[in-house]
Amino acid sequence: MHGSSGSAVPAVAVEKLVKTFKTVEAVKGIDLVVHPGETFGFLGPNGAGKSTTIKILCTLADATSGSARVAGFDVATERDAVRRSIGLVFQEPTLDGYLTAEQNLKFHGELYGVDKSSAAQRRKDVLEMVGLWDRKDDLVQTFSGGMRRRLEIARGLLHSPKVLFLDEPTIGLDPQTRASIWQYLGELHKREEITVFVTTHYMDEAENCDRIAIIDQGRIVALDTPEALKAGVGKDRVSIATADDVAAITALKDKFGLEAKMVEGLVTFSVAEGAAFVPQLFEKLGVAIKSVAVARPTLDDVFLNFTGTSLRDAEQKGGFNPMAARFRGR
């Protein structure tokens, strides 16, 4: 079926999308196209506008201006058609803890009008896929955070959506569970014809996507495959701990012409062939160096390159997000 429905129709097409809350301009003109069948990542710090964009795409919020189409339907004028075509896993949990896992799925199936003759088989399939079939009769309130997330993913898939939206599906989970969630998402394409649109503020997770858009303060600053984005940086990142950071930054500028910044407490700069540069550094810097680390470019460097701050620093500065704060506080 891949392509028979016409790869001409993008899974998601967004044009000049703007969303303004009373005082906050959360999304400041986003353009993007997601192709059918790809896993598309939306990477950005807290408060960047990821959830706001997803809510517009899912018809849960109206755009201030601009347009968006999902699975070929306009989110503003063809609301129900969009809703039938998408699966959703929100940043905040949306399960009923007083129902069992299977009852939550049954509820969803009825709400989406899933064909009765195949509904039971489908429930079994999606529960098996996320490894929860043997827990189907347990109340969801007894589930761990990771199990709930998996159940939500299963539920999002229940009605065979064309596009699955996941908003920070791994937030608040331990690294091992995070990895398993991504494994499920990776395996999805082997089993379903589906486009996955996923947001995250973990750059290591964005590496799992076919293409990513980096979003900062409501704008897309870069959009490409992870490899292309990293290659585009073209430089390694060198981080040094020194006896006198201010003197080191001045010396780097004067002696090597390099712009260095403090990033997470280390003097950090980018230079081509970082490893080969280190001997020169010791020879000529004139400030005592306590440690050196050289790293191949990561998506964080891409972020740094386009925005001038590291993802983690942007995170700390990021706008206060009442919803996120509320749920973290739980």
Binding site: G113, V114, D115, H159, S160, K190
Partner: peptide, 10 residues
């Protein structure tokens, strides 16, 4: 398991 899942009709 890598068996394909039948699509359901909405």
């Amino acid at each position: 398991t890598h068996t394909a899942i039948a699509r359901v009709v909405v």
